[in-house]
Lab assay of single mutants.
Amino acid sequence: KAKLLVLLYAFVATDADTICIGYHANNSTDTVDTILEKNVAVTHSVNLLEDSHNGKLCKLKGIAPLQLGKCNITGWLLGNPECDSLLPARSWSYIVETPNSENGACYPGDLIDYEELREQLSSVSSLERFEIFPKESSWPNHTFNGVTVSCSHRGKSSFYRNLLWLTKKGDSYPKLTNSYVNNKGKEVLVLWGVHHPSSSDEQQSLYSNGNAYVSVASSNYNRRFTPEIAARPKVRDQHGRMNYYWTLLEPGDTIIFEATGNLIAPWYAFALSRGFESGIITSNASMHECNTKCQTPQGAINSNLPFQNIHPVTIGECPKYVRSTKLRMVTGLRNIPSIQYRGLFGAIAGFIEGGWTGMIDGWYGYHHQNEQGSGYAADQKSTQNAINGITNKVNSVIEKMNTQFTAVGKEFNNLEKRMENLNKKVDDGFLDIWTYNAELLVLLENERTLDFHDLNVKNLYEKVKSQLKNNAKEIGNGCFEFYHKCDNECMESVRNGTYDYPKYSEESKLNR
């Protein structure tokens, strides 16, 4: 008799109507990190870190770059004969040098303040090359056809396309004075040089004057150069050297050249137009028929994500570079809930034993079982409120962090190594801060989002509990077992918050 009662009780308990509160689960393989956990499985997430590029040089917003090819900045601007293909260059979106560009200054020497000139050019998007001192009329008392084997072109001695090597005419090199007034309405880049012979005999042979000088002056520039005559090792078949100089001439300003020898005179100059998204990159990537809004030396990035880990040097509207390998923000729920887990921000989770793959029309909802059958029903209101809140948060985070910009490298010469090392340390410090901030932001927001979901499920549970009161009992896994019969209409009233407690209280009292 006792065995019969136990079996009867078990049958009745199993047959009781139930309603459970749960949440969506799926077959997603997404994982995120939080402050407290690593690799948390979630139903949905968004990636904030771009880690792919196309490996190509592309047009930037429809404008092609200027590819210097086998030449570098120095060779292009001075007019190395091997860089003749660059003479027609007028406009570009950015400038590309190759790491091993070999054609710079063909006659050995240095372009002074080269690093600063590169910085200036990094904001130039177009130029006009014009004859600042016409070759045939500007130097009537001097020979202007100086050439050298060091600047050979097609097997013949030649010289820079933008400079003139002035030497004596006959047996004399009379003092020369020439000036140019900038009437271009924009900055003009003027380049010139000073020749330093290897011996007094060479000085006399070329310029006749043993104590020659070169003077260059404008409103913002004033220097006097004296040739340094000295024996030097042979470089590119030359014992002599040429140093090259430049200045930016403001609109309306005048530049005056005065010399008694050794002047490498300007022939062509450049009127410059600035462009905020221009820059110089060093890259071996090849040019393709493609378009982008962000270019790196590795390749083009076409992404609206706020961060990238491809390269710190970028041109155009680019994500911020960070050292992170993963920045994924959760938008959905835990896919593998932890039992009795309390989140960092106070939300209680884990009283549900598992997510439901059968509930596909919402994030949170119900599963019921009664004599009429069983089924899932999503709670659309709480789901939609959660979707709206999380979507707004993700968009806000992306908008705040998605300050796209150009980031170019800084140039230092060989004598500025300590400054370069200090600059690298400062840049590394800023990069570490950006990386830390980005990672911390994602970790915190992921923790908040998961706790937010847990709290929403808990609130749904409490909503049902407050309606049923003692007409049902909690069975410990997020479910309630009714003390009365609850048909589909009754189940719907529980879900929509209109459950009639008094209607079922007498039946429940008897069954309790």
Rank of each mutant, 00 (worst) to 15 (best):
L5M: 13
L7K: 04
Y9R: 08
A10I: 14
T14E: 09
T14Y: 05
T14L: 01
T18I: 13
I19T: 00
G22S: 15
Y23Q: 14
Y23L: 04
H24D: 00
N26F: 14
D30V: 14
D33A: 03
I35N: 06
A41N: 03
H44I: 01
L48Y: 09
E50M: 01
D51L: 11
D51N: 14
H53N: 00
H53L: 01
H53R: 12
L57R: 12
L57K: 06
L57E: 10
K59A: 12
K59E: 08
I63T: 10
A64P: 11
L66N: 10
G69M: 11
I73W: 04
W76N: 06
L78I: 14
S91F: 13
V96E: 04
V96R: 00
E97V: 12
E97A: 03
T98V: 09
Y107W: 07
Y107S: 05
I112T: 14
D113Q: 13
E115D: 02
L117E: 02
E119T: 04
Q120W: 11
L121G: 00
S122C: 12
S122F: 13
V124F: 08
S125T: 14
S126E: 13
E131T: 05
I132N: 11
F133P: 00
S138V: 12
W139T: 04
P140R: 13
G146L: 06
C151L: 10
S152M: 05
S152W: 01
S152D: 08
H153R: 13
G155K: 13
K156Y: 12
K156S: 13
K156G: 13
S157N: 06
F159S: 07
Y160N: 06
S172L: 08
P174C: 02
T177N: 06
N178G: 13
V181M: 13
V181F: 10
G185M: 09
V188N: 01
L189E: 09
L189P: 03
V190E: 01
V190P: 00
V190I: 15
V190W: 04
L191C: 02
G193E: 03
H196C: 04
H196D: 15
P197V: 14
Q203G: 00
S208K: 05
A212S: 15
Y213N: 04
Y213V: 07
V214F: 12
V214A: 09
S218K: 06
F225R: 02
T226K: 11
P227A: 15
A230L: 14
A231T: 09
P233M: 10
P233F: 12
K234I: 14
K234D: 06
R236M: 14
R241S: 03
M242A: 00
Y244S: 05
T247H: 15
L248A: 02
E250K: 11
P251M: 04
D253M: 04
I255E: 00
T260A: 10
T260G: 10
G261S: 01
I264W: 01
Y268R: 06
S273D: 09
R274C: 06
G275V: 07
F276N: 11
F276Q: 13
E277P: 13
E277T: 07
I280G: 04
T282V: 15
